[in-house]
């Protein structure tokens, strides 16, 4: 009897305590103040990132865009309004001085990605190595992530596709964006299609590497020279950093 009582008591205490803990974090049904991180990043493992030196990025050069789309089989369907763009060139003009920049913008692989926060099916996710991807097996094509992304980095596939690349499955009704050439990372290669193309053309404007490794080229360049991120005010901590803007 006594053992029964104590068991009941501890169960009741446990339940009351748990209810109080949940109530403290719940504002309304389904709305929580705190939410456990979906997939915690591994601080000991790598975090892949890009560094783009806009002073070396040539105006009118589209080598990175061409290489990316070729690598991943991104084709034009003849309708530019809805054609997918994994990477685009942006031209900036400072009106006061007339100074012009040209820079590529792709998925910035944020540490705190808004696209992951808003995804209702957990299809938008961040890998432990910091690569932000869409799991097309669970993507329902709602496009919340496209609206949440401040960099306009994601595209929706409107039409049935054929002839995809084996390493880059793409299909109608799902959202997609730059994968940081994750198939190359998983194969052990340490470069992306865009970086490779930029180096091949002799611009050397892009560097790919591990932001967590203090000895990597990208970390050393980030340490020695100033860099910035686009919309740093949003505190998303993107893995794509820029110099010269």
């Amino acid at each position: 009897m006594s053992s029964d009582n104590s068991a009941q008591l501890s169960r009741r205490q446990f339940i009351t305590g748990a209810a109080a803990a949940v109530a403290g974090l719940t504002i309304a049904p389904g709305v929580f103040l705190l939410k456990p991180a979906e997939a915690a990043q591994n601080p000991d493992g790598p975090r892949w990132g890009l560094l783009i030196d806009t002073s070396k990025c040539a105006d009118g050069c589209t080598a990175c865009v061409r290489a990316c789309h070729e690598e991943n089989g991104v084709r034009s369907l003849g309708r530019p309004e809805t054609d997918a763009q994994w990477i685009r060139k942006v031209n900036l003009t400072d009106r006061a001085t007339g100074h012009q920049h040209s820079l590529p913008v792709m998925c910035q692989h944020c540490e705190n990605p808004p696209c992951v926060d808003v995804c209702p099916t957990h299809a938008s996710f961040i890998r432990p190595d910091g690569v932000v991807l869409v799991d097309k097996h669970t993507c329902i094509g709602c496009r919340y992530c496209m609206m949440a992304c401040p960099y306009k980095a994601r595209s929706f596939i409107h039409e049935a596709l054929t002839d995809q690349k084996p390493h880059a499955p793409r299909g109608k009704g799902t959202v997609e964006s730059c994968t940081l050439c994750v198939h190359r990372i998983d194969r052990g290669e340490r470069t992306t299609a865009c970086v490779e193309a930029c180096n091949r053309d002799g611009h050397q404007a892009m560097t790919f590497g591990d932001l967590h490794d203090p000895d990597s080229e990208i970390s050393q360049r980030l340490r020695n020279y100033g860099s910035t991120t686009i919309r740093a005010d949003l505190r998303l901590n993107p893995a794509v950093r820029y110099q010269g803007i």
Binding site: D83, R88, V90
Partner: peptide, 17 residues
């Protein structure tokens, strides 16, 4: 794809500061 985007739609976005 590239040609289509240089005309009207948002490849080569022009932003003025």
């Amino acid at each position: 794809h590239l040609a289509g985007h240089t005309d009207a739609t948002p490849n080569a976005v022009e932003i003025s500061i």
